[in-house]
Amino acid sequence: MPRRLLAVVALAGLLLAAGAQNRYDAVVDYFGDRAAFVSLPSGQTLKVLSFGFQNLAADMLFIWSIQFYSTYHITNRFEFLERVFEVITDITPTYKEPYIVGALIMVYEAKDIPMALRLLDKGARHNPGDWVFELDAGFYCYKYLKDFARAEAYYNRAAAQPGAPSFIRRMKAHMVYLRDDPQAATRMWLDIYRNAESTLERDSAFNHLYQIKAENDLPLLRDKIAVFRGRWGRWPDALPDLVRPGLLAALPRDFAGNDYIYDPQQGTVTAQRIFRWKKR
């Protein structure tokens, strides 16, 4: 056979094979028909089966799972979600991304926060000294579970890790504030305020302290103003009027040291700066 004809036949063979492949792909749904979750072996087994290539095996499974969980037309795709990430993290327990990404999928795709927390707990267990797992877990507790005490516990552990960024301490203080312990929160924020390493941190602590103090002082003032009006049938002319009859031992000032602003016409009292952190 002449050379040119051979080359043409070789090319034709390849094209024919490609065509067959193309038709084949059109028939076979790789994720539907062939999803192998049911027979996914345990992490231990996979470790053996990977013959020393467990990192590669974990990578492949991880990469595959990312693709799979972002294939939106498969409706029951979360059925084996926890198992898949359990297996991946069993094979390579110190590989961090699967914990983080798995938790993301569990929270935002599967909307199962306790599952994500279980995965992150496992990550923290296998990676002592690493704060990212507890940071993420704390955030999910705070944001989606509204369980501030649990979030505080996570942030507490995260902040204790070496090299943990300072904002974790601020998150923790905020959790304490959110779970209605202004005294403890004030103590923590003061500590942050005094030991601040940057103006950002300082300003943030200042703002929080201002807010907490205002939230403590303003109801007190309003209460005393109401008592004053009940006794004398009019609004006090100015805030010091509350001190003179002995309603208040001393006039509270805001965290910046300024007086709260009083409107004698309406009898209302406000702070100079108002911050509103949404509570619950």
Partner: peptide
């Protein structure tokens, strides 16, 4: 087991691919 059509496509694929490989090898 896979359907008849996918089996047929697989056989066709194998034959065409082997033909191409043999021609290349000979070249």
């Amino acid at each position: 087991p896979p359907g008849a059509w996918t089996v047929l496509l697989s056989i066709l694929y194998a034959l065409a691919y082997i033909l191409a490989l043999l021609c290349l090898t000979i070249l």
